[in-house]
Amino acid sequence: MEKFTKLTAVAASLPMANVDTDKVIPSRFLKTIKRTGLGAHLFDPLRYNHQDGSENPEFVLNREPWRHAGVLVAGDNFGCGSSREHAPWALLDFGIRSVIAPSFGDIFYNNSLKNGLLPIRLPEAVCEQLMADAAMGANARLSIDLERQVVIRPGGEEIHFEIDAFHKHLLLEGLDDIGQTLEHAPAIDRFEEKRRAAMPWLPATTEAAS
């Protein structure tokens, strides 16, 4: 995972509530066996005209300077719906490293953290201010400092955000959390042994698939 420390970037706003993961990346693009290359299909239904596949000139990510957006400011319940990790992969592949919204779908939030995409929850009124900043385009970059847990508005105003210490650490260091969990391997061994003894009736899946 790529580290996330500080970011200064053009922010694009997507003032829509309940942007589900089918909108972020429709299912027909999930047939890949890779994590990369999905950026071209990010927000496909909003971004392209369905008649001829041309770009919809109205959509924010098709306009300058937001084509180069690194931050997305979105509406409530962003990323609700399916568990597809293709959603954060597509955002990252496009170049977006952080999404700011009043709330997120739970699985999307987790998936983002695990890929170096920083999801930031801020109150609706604050998101509206940030959207106004984003509308100013290239002259109005947003900065994010994860170490200090602040979003810095173009005028210099700092807005504090919450993130749990564990994920903050992983993001700052670019660490893989499987490695962290494997440090608990002896505890997992002990737990498994106890469970097997207490619940010998738990069937093995090998029987169901043989």
Binding site: R84, E85, N111, N115, D177, I178, T181
Partner: peptide, 11 residues
């Protein structure tokens, strides 16, 4: 998500 799938497979 897929990262968690990998996490469960491994641990």
């Amino acid at each position: 998500g897929t990262s968690e799938v990998e996490h469960v497979l491994a641990t």
